[in-house]
Every structure is written in C-alpha cells, then in structure tokens.
Simulated scan of single mutants.
Amino acid sequence: MSSTGLENSSVIITGGGSGIGRAAALRFAQEGARVVIADINADSAKEVTEEIRSAGGTAVTVVGDLSDQAVVDEVVTTAVEAFGGIDVLVNNAGIMGRIAATADITDAEWERILRVNLTSPFLMTRAVLPHMLEKGKGAIVNTSSEAGLRGSASGTGYTVTKHGLIGLTRSTAVMYRDKGIRTNAIAPGAIETPLPYEMDPEAQGPSVVIKYAGNVGRRADADEVATVIVFLASDAAGNINGAVLPVDNGWSAV
C-alpha cells in the first residue's frame, strides 16, 4: 500500500512526455497512481505511457495543444472515463521561447507564451474543479519557475507568465481551501530538461539575464523536481495549500 495516499488515484500531467513531466509521471505511477499523459508531442507522450505500462503501471495518452479548449476537454473526459474521476492535476506544460526583453517581443510571441504558460493551466484548472468538488477533495500542482520569483531569470514573456501562474495558484488555493482542494506551485531553478529556447547574447534580454547566471548553482535532475511534485500532491502535504516551493538549490535565497 502506498504511504502517499496516491494508490489508484487519477492523475493528469500536462507536458508529461518529457523533462519534469515525464519524471513526475513515472514517480506517480510508482506510487500506484493511474496517469493521463497529456502532451503536444505524440511520440514522447506515447513512449512515457508505454514505459509506465511496461513497468506494470496504468497510463493513457492524450495528444494535443493544451491551450486549445477542445484538447483540455478531451484530457478531462479521458481521465474521468478511464479512471472514474480526477484526484490530481499537474500543470507542467510550458514554453520558454526567446529570452527577449519587453521591447523586443512580437505580438505573436506574447500571445503564444501567454496561451501555453498561463491560459492553459487556467483552462485545465477550471475544467477539473467540478470533478474535484464532486469528490470533495483534490490536489493541483503548478510548475512555475525561478522566473516566477524574480525578474532576472529569463525573458519578459516567460517571467510574466510564471509570475501569473503563482497568482493563479494562490487565488485557487484561497477560493477552494474549504472544499478539500489544495493548490500549490513549485519554482524550479536550473534543471537538466529539453526545454528549448532562443538566445542572441547581444540582444537586450540575454545580455541582462546573463549577468545573474552565476547565482544559478548546479543544474538539478528532473527527478529531483518530480519528487517534490508528488509530495505536494500526496497526503503527506495535507495541510500545505497556496505554497510556492522553490526547488532551486538555494538560488532564490541569493
């Protein structure tokens, strides 16, 4: 029997096909949870699903752009139909894009990063809440970033959306604290993940951000972050709500 209370729980993980999302999916499956892997990349999502199944776990895949309401609806419907409800939502999918300063971001870049990093977690959260409210319990974990705690860790678009995700976390925590639903966030620092980004070192954004790169410290393994996600979703974190937990080797303390 799992000591985390996650055995047979229904867990949705966005961006579950790689990096932190993949590591979290494997960790939840090890705890006996049944996992929905939601990702825009079909091949990587299916690989993680098969990896879980090969180890004796239970997982299903939903492929699509999670900033699309229709895909969000499909993810939630899949979890409910396959596993009987939703116990945990991990809003992990995100993009970094260019490390651009405010004056250099195009309208298209701004809209895209906003849709993926902030609107998508909102849509997912809104969609799962009725199911959690019906059960009278649930846990939501949002992957923010060190960029959600300071202005010097990334470009303007990424920084703004990760600050916004912390606002979504805290508001949701307060609104549903008396309904048995907990909402927390993690703020990873430098992680060994395949999150792509573009950087012209001569441009304003990178030239400023790079000045603070010495404070980053070592790069963590994705599994080190995944263990914190699982903890926040587990019974062991039953009285933790509205928290933003840095997972950054002390970067936020510098």
Score class of each variant (00 low, 15 high):
V76I: 15
D221L: 14
Y212W: 11
V88S: 09
A127V: 13
L168T: 11
I13H: 08
G17Q: 08
G238C: 09
H131N: 13
G242Q: 03
T159L: 03
S144R: 10
P246E: 03
E74I: 10
L245Q: 07
V160D: 01
A108Y: 02
G32V: 09
K46C: 02
P196C: 07
L149M: 12
I13A: 04
I113K: 05
A213D: 13
A203N: 08
G17M: 08
G56F: 09
M124C: 15
V216D: 11
V60T: 03
A101Q: 02
V36E: 04
G97I: 12
N8M: 11
T172H: 04
K179D: 15
D178N: 13
Q69N: 08
A222K: 13
I191H: 02
G205C: 11
I113G: 10
I12R: 00
G205N: 05
I13G: 02
P196H: 06
R182N: 08
I181R: 01
D235C: 04
S3Y: 11
T172W: 08
G64Y: 12
T161S: 10
G97T: 13
G97N: 11
R34P: 00
G21T: 08
A185C: 10
K135F: 01
W251C: 04
T61V: 07
Q30A: 13
F28G: 02
S120N: 08
V254G: 06
E134C: 04
G5W: 03
A139I: 12
N215R: 14
P196T: 06
Y197K: 09
A29E: 03
G15P: 02
A203S: 14
I105T: 14
A190P: 14
E224G: 06
Q204K: 13
V71L: 02
A173P: 05
V63Q: 00
A237F: 02
V216F: 11
V244R: 03
R218A: 14
G148K: 04
E81C: 07
I95R: 05
T143P: 03
